[in-house]
C-alpha cells in the first residue's frame, strides 16, 4: 500500500490525503493511532498528543500557529475527538455547531452574520442554543448568501483506527 494513495477519513467524513506526509510524520501518525488504541482515556490521550505533536514540530522550528494547521495535528485531534465521542464525553457536531464555527471564524459578531445571511438574531440565538431548528430551505438560502452550501456525506465509522491504512485511513 503506497502512502501517496492513502487517506485519513475524519469524524466529519472529510478525506485527508496522506501523500504529503514525510516518513517521520507518517511514523508519528502511526504512533498516535497506536497510542489512541492502547490508551483510550480521553484526558490521557489529549495530554499525550498535544505534547507529542508540539515537540515534533517545535524541533523543526515551526511556529505553533503553523504546526496546528498540519495534517498530523488534524489527525491527532480527530483521534482524540473519536475517543471523547465514543466515551460519551462530547457529542459529534451538528449543523448548528458548524454554523457557530462559521460565525466565530468569519464574522466579528452574530449581528454581522445575521445581516449577511438574512436570518433574524432572535432565531439564530435559539438555533445556536439548540432550542430550535432552521428549515432546510431557510438554511440553504442563508448559507448561499455567504458562499456556503449544504452537502450530504456518507456516515463514517467512529471507531479509532488501528494504524495508517486501516480504520480511519483508506486506500483511494
Amino acid at each position: 500500500m503506497e502512502p501517496q494513495h492513502m487517506k485519513y477519513v475524519d469524524l466529519k467524513g472529510r478525506e485527508l490525503p496522506l501523500g504529503g506526509l514525510d516518513a517521520q510524520e507518517r511514523r508519528l501518525v502511526a504512533e498516535l493511532q497506536q497510542r489512541a488504541k492502547s490508551h483510550p482515556d480521553w484526558d490521557d490521550f489529549e495530554n499525550y498528543w498535544t505534547a507529542a505533536v508540539a515537540s515534533f514540530y517545535d524541533a523543526r522550528g515551526l511556529p505553533r500557529r503553523e504546526s496546528r494547521e498540519k495534517l498530523v495535528y488534524k489527525i491527532a485531534q480527530d483521534l482524540s475527538s473519536r475517543l471523547a465521542v465514543s466515551a460519551g464525553l462530547a457529542r459529534p457536531p451538528d449543523y448548528r455547531d458548524e454554523l457557530e464555527e462559521i460565525i466565530r471564524m468569519s464574522f466579528p459578531t452574530r449581528r454581522e452574520f445575521c445581516k449577511a445571511t438574512g436570518l433574524s438574531e432572535d432565531m439564530l440565538s435559539h438555533v445556536l442554543a439548540h432550542r430550535k431548528h432552521l428549515a432546510i430551505d431557510t438554511l440553504s438560502q442563508a448559507l448561499d448568501r455567504i458562499g456556503f452550501q449544504l452537502r450530504i456525506v456518507p456516515r463514517r465509522e467512529s471507531a479509532v483506527s488501528s494504524g495508517v491504512g486501516s480504520g480511519g485511513s483508506e486506500d483511494e
Binding site: 469524524l11 482515556d41 484526558d43 490521557d44 489529549e46 495530554n47 498535544t50 508540539a54 505553533r64 500557529r65 496546528r68 495535528y73 485531534q77 482524540s80 475527538s81 471523547a84 465521542v85 460519551g88 464525553l89 462530547a90 457529542r91 459529534p92 457536531p93 451538528d94 455547531d97 458548524e98 457557530e100 464555527e101 466565530r104 445556536l128 442554543a129 439548540h130 432550542r131
Partner: peptide, 29 residues
C-alpha cells in the same frame, strides 16, 4: 443554552487556542 454536552468542536477550539498561545499546559485527568 440547552444544558447538553459540548460538541467536540468546542473542545477542539480550546485545544487550538492553548496550543497556539502557550508553550505548555495540562488537562488534569
Amino acid at each position: 443554552s440547552d444544558g447538553e454536552l459540548h460538541s467536540i468542536d468546542a473542545w477542539n477550539w480550546l485545544t487550538d487556542q492553548l496550543y497556539g498561545l502557550f508553550k505548555a499546559w495540562t488537562r488534569v485527568p
